[in-house]
Nucleic acid binder design. Sequence first.
RNA 1: GCGCUCGUAGCUCAGCUGGAUAGAGCAACGGACUUCUAAUCCGUAGGUCCCGUGUUCGAAUCACGGCGAGCGUGCCA
Length: 577
Amino acid sequence: MATSFPDLIQPRLEAALQATSIGSELPEGFSPAVDPAQNKQFGDYQTNAAMVLAKRVKKNPRELAAEIVEAFDGEGLTEKPEIAGPGFINFRLQTDVLEQRVSDLLADSERHGVDAVADPQTVVIDFSAPNVAKPMHVGHIRSTIIGDSLARIARFMGHQVITDNHIGDWGTQFGMILHGWKNELDQAALEADPVPELLRVYKTVNQMCKDDPELKETCKAELVALQAGDEENLEIWKKCVDLSKQGLQKIYDKLDVEFDHWLGESYYNDALEPLVKSLVEKGIAKESEGAMAVFFPDHEKLADQPPAIIQKSDGGFLYATTDLATIDHRVNEFGANSIWYVVGAPQQLHFDQVFEAARMMGHDAALEFVPFGSILGKDRKMYRTRSGDTVQLDDVLVESVSRAKKIIEEKNPELPEEEKAEISTAIGIGAVKYAELSQYRMTDYIFDWDTMLALKGNTAPYLINAYVRTRAIFRKMGSDFAEAEQISLTADAEKALALKLAQYAETVPNILSDFRPNTLATYIYELATDYHKFWEACPVLKSEGATKETRLALCELTGRVLQHALGLLGIKTVEKM
RNA sequence: GCGCUCGUAGCUCAGCUGGAUAGAGCAACGGACUUCUAAUCCGUAGGUCCCGUGUUCGAAUCACGGCGAGCGUGCCA
């Protein structure tokens, strides 16, 4: 397994540091950072170690850099390093090292140079989590797509990943749904397409409740009956949940998203009362204004915030209670070392409180809140339809695929219908996902069809097109890539592409450090760009000998990495477009 | 009031642990197709990184204080 270039340079740099005049006074545990050069003119990699150290030992950074360069052994790895600017040390890889790396990558069609983590964790990822009896709207896009991508990446990195769809299948909305089911339901519509009918019923009752306080009480009574175990209501509830799950599954199928578990809120019903009891016994929770609450007097931030309420004065439980019971289950039954919550940023306080309460209960699993910003319309307000409704996720997907189809009809009308359908699905769904994942998750996202489905720039169609072009070469050639006996990098575009391919190994392991799939998106875009440049500058099939073998190898590797990296984002590639 | 997040080109956004002249795309303008898919590439233009102070050899990045926007703030999730 090949090691990334920074990991190869770093130990040699450390050895060089030891050999300098300050070798004996290096700070404990100091490890010099080796980063890709920002600008090609500076070489391939750089370190600022001389400047960092010069500060601590009060030496001139450039003089120290000179010592380091003198002591640095680049044998079989880099050219002699150069000093630049205030004391940067720039490294340039030897061409034959890069050539060897291309060969190594050709042999590594599973991992593409990326090492798995040394300490695999059992990670539960909590994402999507829609409410039952309400279709998913655009607000669920981010959680679903980001969560799925993180799951794919974590699995590839060697973690034991468990995905859990914590659906909202138990809550106050069921009061209205029960009443609606009994009084407003259109049986024929339900049989034809259950989910929209459930939504219609819910909306109708919700609207009626707004100006009818009496009805509101009726609904509440239905809810209480349900919670008390009323048989009729339980049966209706169960039916609603089943129908909704079927509807949700259709969307997940379109998105190619899978869950290992669907443990919704109702799954934890029986655990809530004992949990509260135990928290009270341990002195973690106490009675306050008629409710049971957890206070955080010793916590710097939470001390000034309201407490977390885990049982209402009427005896009912809240989502903080359920979330704590869920942590118990995930730790005790799934053996989770780590739980990631991909949930909107407004819930920051809630998770701060739940995590702190879990810590007080004795849990030491790493609990990570992975927040994201809102989806806005062009007017910078919550994205809604013209009539003011929330936009349904399925409508977005349908629209995106149909727009992609239209473009294919224009560009490539001679393709068979079946292929057109497959391509427009891949591009349409891919465009929605990529628009989401290419942006830093905390940035409020402005939903715009034209940006999302644009053919140029940092978009899914551009990236998929780069992949298609790698395949076009082999299709034209009439056979798949066989093997390359001799790799010989000469053109600048070849070297730049080879280096970028090698840097996949540096990019992927970093994504999870701050849960930023967008750093992978940036990499894919740069790779596609480097490939397109190579494509313009370096004819493949017309070249000969080692040059042809090398270029075919670069096409093959680019295709593999593009496909794999897009796969980590949950985006499919196609062979033609 | 308190807390969280954000503020970078006309527009949409990158820029993670401080590093060299702040980068892309879109839109604008100018070029390149008897060619392996032009769904591409090359070039031009575009900036008080919200403001101020501080730490540092070095700040879009860190600290503090402002300004502006969004969200959350005891019994919805």
